[in-house]
Nucleic acid binder design. Structure first.
Lengths: 134, 134
DNA sequence: TTTTAAGTCTATCAACTTGGTAGGTTATTG
DNA sequence: CAATAACCTACCAAGTTGATAGACTTAAAA
């Protein structure tokens, strides 16, 4: 399941997508409109900024805004960034791969099945962008 | 991601599938062969028994065994039982549904997308059984 | 140049979950 | 009745999650 943090992240990104190219948006505004705890939202937006998804301006008239076209930001990217692996097993993850202990990947039935599940999920998440959220 | 508990559960079930209709199997045997901490495995098997997946016999000559044909036990059932929801959002889960707070399901872009992801995953997990694991 | 508005950083916290252990109890079989 | 093996209750350490507090920095406006 997506963590609350991830859900908040998506709500905030949805709001910023809606206001794309309309200048910086206040954290406090997003917090109010999307009912997200202010300080928690601060952390999330900062993380998204550090990852290059958002950009910000300090001081009066400042705020956050998308650093690129929302149609170019994949949902899969956000999930990986904020929530972690999309795959159900580490040994099947593309971006967070870890070898199985005591289990040969070549003859592990679960392994193959979970690759299928991963690909099925990615088929959707890699082909949807922030623009599709609004 | 599947928890370690879930991964252990699948390993144990794989072992029991392999020994289906060959009489009770000792917890300690599964523990050794599959390298699963004994006492942890006890909990897992007991849970599977309470859910009707396994059956057991006490005393000498006892042990655990599958209570039905492994070809009739869906992987999705086990995942839900041991790991929890398959969906990425509570508001999209079939077996663990919870309403979204501050978010109208009818006009939530994430909601619709996550339904797609759920169905893509279920398309696989609901159509694979323990038999497919070995 | 001071004030004020904003994001940024550090740190802390309670509650919960995860992975695992310990030890005693009950049921079965020989 | 003795041995065996599942069952039950309780507990614990470590990590994660969701959230808050407060001080610091930057930039625009008065």
């Amino acid at each position: 399941m997506l963590s609350k943090k991830s859900q908040y992240a998506f709500k905030a990104l949805e709001y910023l997508t809606l206001h794309y190219k309309q200048g910086p948006v206040l954290i406090s505004e997003i917090s109010k409109k999307k009912k997200i705890p202010l300080k928690f939202l601060e952390n999330i937006l900062l993380e998204l900024k550090k990852a290059g998804i958002l950009d910000s301006k300090k001081g009066k008239g400042g705020g956050y805004f998308l650093s690129k076209d929302p149609a170019k930001v994949k949902v899969a990217t956000i999930v990986r960034l904020v929530n972690g692996p999309i795959a159900m097993l580490p040994c099947v993850s593309l971006y967070f791969y870890e070898r199985c202990k005591n289990c040969d990947e070549k003859k592990c039935g679960l392994h193959d099945m979970m690759i299928e599940v991963r690909d099925a999920s990615l088929g959707i998440l890699e082909n949807r962008t922030l623009k599709d959220l609004v």
